[in-house]
């Protein structure tokens, strides 16, 4: 403990300005080269000042890096987003609810618009359902969908009926996560966007890849199931 007294401050230090001193031998360095120490120091300081000025000028004039918009697409592209004319996306998500509950929520197809992007409404009658998507320029796109597989608490698959303006297929599986963590939901989606390349251009224009749309969709599903609502930072309803 005694030895610590060398380090521990009995009292908080006084604020002080530290004087700058040039050590003796530096003077020798210049003198040995036939330059007076004062000149050496002056030249040195001059050079340092110029360098500092140049550096500061660079830092000041460097343009601000523009901030990306809040919903900017990540800079990396997720693989497998487009396969020929098909948009392909597959994602899994852990939802902290029992499998039966997650399955039931998903099976009620009228819930889909609450989490899937660009989907306005779904009306279901038996294994048939009628989906309304938001299209470009405020249009709506109507798609007839058939449930092609329905295994309770395990798997759901659906496909658009032939001749629909959007050709699409979806497959969802539900698995138990270990130790009561809930349910893994795995969602694979394949679709041909309306009007082929044009639709794709629109999709690219709004900078949402199929993979990103699906990822966002599943995260919203997770929020709805775990938190009961979809998070927003909007301070007023009109912005939400």
């Amino acid at each position: 403990m005694e030895r610590d007294e060398r380090y521990i401050m009995r009292d908080p230090p006084e604020r002080r300005i530290y004087p700058v001193t040039v050590p003796e031998h530096r003077g020798d360095f210049w003198r040995n080269r036939g330059i007076s120490p004062a000149t050496g120091v002056a030249v040195g300081v001059g050079v340092a000042a110029l360098a500092a000025l140049a550096g500061m000028a660079y830092i000041r004039n460097r343009p601000d890096t523009p901030r990306p918009p809040d919903d900017a697409e990540p800079r990396f592209r997720e693989g497998g987003a487009w396969k020929g004319r098909f948009a392909v996306a597959g994602k899994s998500i852990l939802i902290g609810k029992p499998r039966a509950e997650v399955y039931a929520y998903f099976r009620d197809l009228s819930n889909q618009p609450k989490f899937m992007e660009n989907l306005r409404t779904v009306r279901a009658e038996g294994t048939r359902s009628h989906w309304t998507f938001a299209g470009a320029f405020g249009q709506e796109i109507e798609v007839e969908v058939e449930l092609t597989d329905d295994r309770e608490n395990e798997r759901l698959a659906y496909a658009s009926v032939p001749g629909s303006p959007i050709e699409m297929r979806g497959e969802v599986t539900f698995r138990d996560a270990p130790a009561g963590r809930g349910t893994y939901v795995e969602f694979d989606l394949v679709y041909v966007p309306p009007a082929g390349a044009a639709g794709r251009a629109v999709a690219n224009l709004v900078r949402r890849s199929p993979q990103q749309q699906l990822r966002h969709g599943l995260k919203r599903l997770k929020m709805l199931m775990e938190a009961g609502e979809v998070a927003t930072s909007a301070n007023r309803k009109e912005n939400a």
Binding site: H216, K219, K222, M223, A227, V230
Partner: peptide, 10 residues
């Protein structure tokens, strides 16, 4: 997981 809005999570 559920506080940060979906669009901002990217």
């Amino acid at each position: 997981d559920n506080a940060n809005p979906v669009e901002k999570q990217d």
